[in-house]
Design a protein around this nucleic acid. Sequence first.
DNA 1: ACCATTTTTCACAAACTTTTGAAAGTTCAA
DNA 2: TTGAACTTTCAAAAGTTTGTGAAAAATGGT
Lengths: 168, 168
Amino acid sequence: MKLAEAKAQFIQTWGSLGAQWGINRTMAQIHALLMIMPDPLSADEIMAELNISRGNTNMNVRELINWGLVDRVLVPGERKEYFTAEKDIYKVAREITRERKRRELDPILKSLEQLQELEGDPKDKHVKAFKESITGINRFAHQVDGALNTFVKADENWFTSTLLKLFK
Amino acid sequence: MKLAEAKAQFIQTWGSLGAQWGINRTMAQIHALLMIMPDPLSADEIMAELNISRGNTNMNVRELINWGLVDRVLVPGERKEYFTAEKDIYKVAREITRERKRRELDPILKSLEQLQELEGDPKDKHVKAFKESITGINRFAHQVDGALNTFVKADENWFTSTLLKLFK
DNA sequence: ACCATTTTTCACAAACTTTTGAAAGTTCAA
DNA sequence: TTGAACTTTCAAAAGTTTGTGAAAAATGGT
């Protein structure tokens, strides 16, 4: 397989992955492109590589910067802005986890806490079933929250140190 | 908070959660409804509770059955079909994980294996950067695959006892 | 201050997804 | 075999998301 072909396949695979995860396809493709490029790219270069419009490029690059996945790079003596992506996939995974947790899990935890305050006859089987569901989901959500917090805070050696603990 | 209100809030929260995760909103709402109801519901009852059409109900209930999240229940002496959802959230999480892994992670692993076979001058920095990216992502993807497999196969107490200890 | 270059915005168009409801299909008891 | 009860299908409508490109705004060198 040639580089150009492999690049195209990777960009397209990462793109559909993003789409399945509720992330805009173009955003994921720009991210893929920047991850495999050794040097930063300008907006025009991204437009040319992916065949997308200026507006689209601008919007999605900005969103990637919001997520903390892409950085602006200023090349001395150049007016243009360049963009680059974190290449360590573990760091990328942690950034994405942190951001999704904040946007998705945190609001759910809040809603679940509220729902615990349900008043009603505990002998009513509808009330009972509801309370049991919410309690179970809440407990699970807190466990996930704890695990994700640990992952987000973990440093590079987390996996290694975890393995060590396992074998003790 | 009254039961009806709490129910509505839960259904709507679970629904947006689903939407963010690339699952159809109605499908997630039907799932939420069935999780909190003590007894199975018929298609007509689902239609009435959620204010949706017959076709929509049918389509999404079938999809939930495909995912293994909802079961058909036949009530003796009744012609109608009833539907019920698994109420143990850990089982639900495992079903969803198994299904999403199959649909999403497995194809990515395949694509990554292919991309490892890239030929090209190892001194070319583009080739070098690409290979390094793919190798890192591939290693990470395999770790995730392993972790998810363990989770999917786990029994009810695995999450609490093992994972929690690991992360502490 | 001016102008050339670059970035951002935004109204609209295109593509895609979801929902509806009526019609067709199936099932089963009599 | 019939018809009432129920389920499934499907084409069209509604809704949502994404992408475009031209215009406006910002920037920085002279």
